[in-house]
């Protein structure tokens, strides 16, 4: 059982006009096995929340705390956060030319597990995970994210999540740019990992579409850099109906 606790988190970015506050006091607790949908309009700060927790250097934490099972996440380097059990599935996964998917996955798993996986079981493990995500085996010889379609990039993110076995995963707009088939495949992957690994999930999305495949336990409406309303799955249904207009400044 793991718990991610975000308390009164304030985050700024530096712009040409000086520091600009994006997150204005976020409070959120995610336990193993729970799925929390973070929904909100564009520009509300959802991605900033995701990247701040993962430790992107662009964001400055001005106050508040983030802990995972009592450990101070904000005090960790980016790779230490991953080793502690956090995973961020990115909206725009980065291309790394010349580094093959297989080399990348092996290096990452070795770093997270603290030892190189045994070749024989590892090959099988990867193959099984790739098959489940409908990924071609030749995929592993391609350069990381280079020339991948939108759907391939997202499947590759979920593949990593499955192999790295995090405690808490943040899925940032994982549904964006996916057609219905890819959305279903990716969602099934997320549900499978959640089931098998008792994963806690922060699911960031603009649309309710993905919630037909991944059932949230909690829905949080995000606007103006903080959570402005919370509820159960019924809140998503309401958003589907009326959109975010009432949460936006008049």
């Amino acid at each position: 059982m793991s718990t991610l606790i975000i308390k009164d988190l304030h985050v700024s970015v530096s712009t040409d006009e000086g520091m600009k506050e994006i997150l204005r006091g976020v409070d959120l607790t995610i336990n193993s096995g729970e799925t929390h949908a973070i929904m909100g309009p564009n520009g509300s700060g959802k991605s900033t929340l995701a990247y701040s927790i993962a430790g992107h250097p662009k964001y400055t934490i001005t106050s508040g705390s983030v802990t995972l099972d009592g450990q101070d996440v904000l005090d960790m380097t980016v790779d230490e956060r991953a080793k502690a059990g956090l995973f961020l599935a990115m909206q725009y996964p980065v291309e790394v030319p010349g580094v093959s998917v297989s080399n990348f996955l092996r290096t990452a798993v070795t770093a997270i597990r603290g030892e190189a996986p045994k070749i024989r079981t590892w090959v099988g493990e990867v193959k099984e995970a790739m098959t489940a995500l409908h990924m071609d085996p030749e995929f592993s010889e391609r350069s990381v994210n280079e020339g991948f379609s939108g759907g391939e990039k997202k499947r590759h993110e979920i593949l990593q999540m499955e192999l790295l076995k995090p405690k808490i995963a943040i899925l940032d707009e994982t549904d964006s740019g996916l057609d219905v088939d890819a959305l279903r495949t990716v969602s099934e992957g997320v549900n499978r990992v959640k089931e098998n690994q008792d994963l806690g999930i922060m699911l960031i999305t603009h649309y309710t579409r993905i919630l037909r495949y991944i059932n949230p336990d909690f829905v949080h409406v995000f606007a103006g850099g903080k959570i402005v309303e919370e509820g159960g799955p019924e809140l998503a249904a309401k958003l589907e109906e009326s959109g975010y207009a009432e949460y936006l400044p008049a």
């Binding site: 993962a54 980016v78 996964p93 790394v96 030319p97 010349g98 580094v99």
Partner: peptide, 24 residues
């Protein structure tokens, strides 16, 4: 950042990227 966010330490991530740059 991408490589580090997968648990790969900064120095090793740098090495991977540069090896990748020359791999072609």
């Amino acid at each position: 950042f991408y490589l580090q966010s997968r648990g790969i330490p900064a120095e090793e991530a740098r090495r991977l990227v540069i090896r990748g740059f020359f791999a072609e």
